[in-house]
Design a protein around this nucleic acid. Structure first.
Lengths: 340, 340
DNA sequence: CTGAAAGCGCTTACAG
DNA sequence: CTGAAAGCGCTTACAG
């Protein structure tokens, strides 16, 4: 049998209340008593039950991270960041990839999940407003990651998608490219449409026309970038530069360009967004917009933890800065990284 | 106040025992009673407390996945697979990236974690035997992923590292390369040394000498592959082929080769291991060994769940087959994928 | 087929 | 500074 708080109390010759107090670092326990208890716990290999504690104290010591789907280097870094921050505060991380699942109150396993956590991070684009309300109604703190939560009064964190896209497209314009295409993300996602807005704004501000046939939708992964680029290559004339809304799509696009016998950047310049690890190892190294995914994961957890611990400050909407990372694929010959 | 089982019972006009029975799908509840209870739960928006259930039934409905560090496409796919399988069985997934943490009974937050789960998957190379024993002693089912658990009687899953490496190096030999270098992983990891064994075996079986200076250690990520390749490029003559023990290292190595002005595969052939998503989009597309990471994650969860549900069969050691994926970087001109 | 009651292992006022 | 006791919200024999 696993030892319980009773076993420890008996072994130490104190009451369970006292054991509980040393467990929770109550200041008013006599040093001598505390030592006895600690020693008993050690001797028995005692491990307090998270369930019992959760039931009695109404706190679980775990938080959840909810996703559209768990794949790709982007989410990987996010999870990693969240994991680090959670560990630092002795919290555990539950992940739930709502791939294909309905993300709402009707989802049974998601409902059960809410009773296992003290708060949750919603990194799932397209979370419904009413689901957020639902969670808040249960007194569960929530922070939304990577998307503007229209209408819901909730903390959120996102990179500066508009500004990042604008910066990199402006950089392409400075290179004197004029037929600048974009491989964008799925319509419905705000981070996708924000990057498109940045693209359009940059073109407009420099008096360039935005050709509808130069904007093609992808799905943020390599294969959709590959396919989109193939379509772009069918055009006459071919675009002289392409902005892919994610590095993964840029990787796919680069493969398509190479396969067609054209060169990057001599024939077509190509840039991405995200600055995933692989970007710098491409051939040529990919010029892109850096966003700190690890940092976003950490920040989200820390914000959430602050709310869990009762922070009452006004709702925060954090827009994190992005930086332009210039490598070779845009046509710059510098090998090193420059931020504007 | 959140509704409890008492609220539901009262609303439905039954006892809490009956509510509990419909919650757990007991067969012997009268249909009419069940309907009343279901309706009351619906009306109240009732959500049973995982903690209370866990305490009473000694079961948590969650499993843990433990990692050395949470990063890279490899672990990303593993997590994704685990998540899918867990969801399918209405289990939740707790992840713990033991980056830098001591993976043993002394780790306090890991200890607490064990009380939150019904079993765990150890994907952390270098888990100590005594830690596994410790968990099993607590009656917690364990499955080890990606490593041979020497001496510990525990279920484990791993790809055929030796066979995969042997296959791809043999393929290089058939190309008539003779100075075949290897960028291997860290010494301590069995999956790293297994891949090295496969490499040596292939050389030996074909009467080739294995030059110590052609084997350089990396750390499974891009940057270490890049650095290792730079060292290989210093040699005279340069190797005519390189086997990187992971695709990520191959990606780094490819960048180093390109940067030196040499071509892949004309000057140096290059192959990897894993078949991550990006491999096929490299320039040239990377010949590699495919292992089903998503499938391994799913299999691990299903094996664990079987144990949790009381499966008493003998300890399983699953070695999953790998397949050779021939693309361009080895020198084959075929664009399509062939498996031997 | 259903209910009363004990018990799971903690926390937390309340006394002292 | 410490203990006795109630309570957190469930499950599960045990009766009937």
């Amino acid at each position: 049998m696993r030892p319980t708080i009773y076993t420890v109390a008996q072994q130490a010759g104190v009451s369970i209340a006292t054991v509980s107090r040393v467990l929770n670092n109550y200041p008013l326990v006599k040093a001598e008593t505390k030592a006895k208890v600690l020693q008993a716990m050690e001797a028995l290999g005692y491990q307090p039950s998270a369930c019992a504690r959760g039931l009695a104290a109404n706190t679980t010591g775990t938080i959840a991270l909810i996703f559209p789907k768990l794949s790709g280097p982007f989410f990987s870094a996010l999870i990693h960041g969240a994991e680090i921050a959670a560990s630092d505060s002795d919290y555990h991380l539950l992940i739930y990839g709502a791939a294909g699942a309905t993300l709402g109150a009707d989802n049974q396993t998601l409902g059960m999940l809410t009773t296992k956590v003290d708060g949750l991070i919603l990194a799932s684009p397209g979370v419904s407003r009413c689901y957020i309300r639902d969670l808040q109604h249960q007194n569960l703190p929530v922070v939304v990651l990577g998307e503007e939560p229209f209408g819901a009064p909730v903390d959120s964190i996102q990179p500066d998608n508009v500004g990042g896209a604008e910066k990199i497209v402006t950089h392409l314009i400075k290179h004197n490219y004029r037929r600048i295409a974009m491989i964008k993300g799925p319509e419905a996602k705000t981070h996708a449409s924000d990057r498109e807005h940045g693209y359009r704004k940059a073109l407009r501000d420099h008096g360039l026309h935005c050709y509808a046939e130069l904007v093609i939708a992808g799905a943020f992964n390599e294969s959709s970038g590959y396919t989109a680029m193939q379509r772009l290559l069918l055009q006459n004339p071919v675009p002289d530069a392409v902005f892919a809304a994610s590095d993964q799509m840029a990787i796919g696009a680069m493969a398509a360009i190479h396969e067609s016998g054209l060169r990057v950047p001599e024939d077509i310049a190509l840039v991405g967004f995200d600055d995933i690890e692989t970007a710098q190892y491409m051939h040529p190294p990919l010029t892109t917009v850096h966003q700190d995914m690890l940092g976003q994961g950490q920040l989200a957890v820390n914000l959430l933890l602050a709310r869990i611990n009762g922070a009452e400050s006004a709702v925060e909407t954090k827009i994190l800065p992005t930086t332009l990372v210039i490598r070779r694929s845009c046509g710059c010959t510098l090998a090193n990284i420059i931020s504007e």
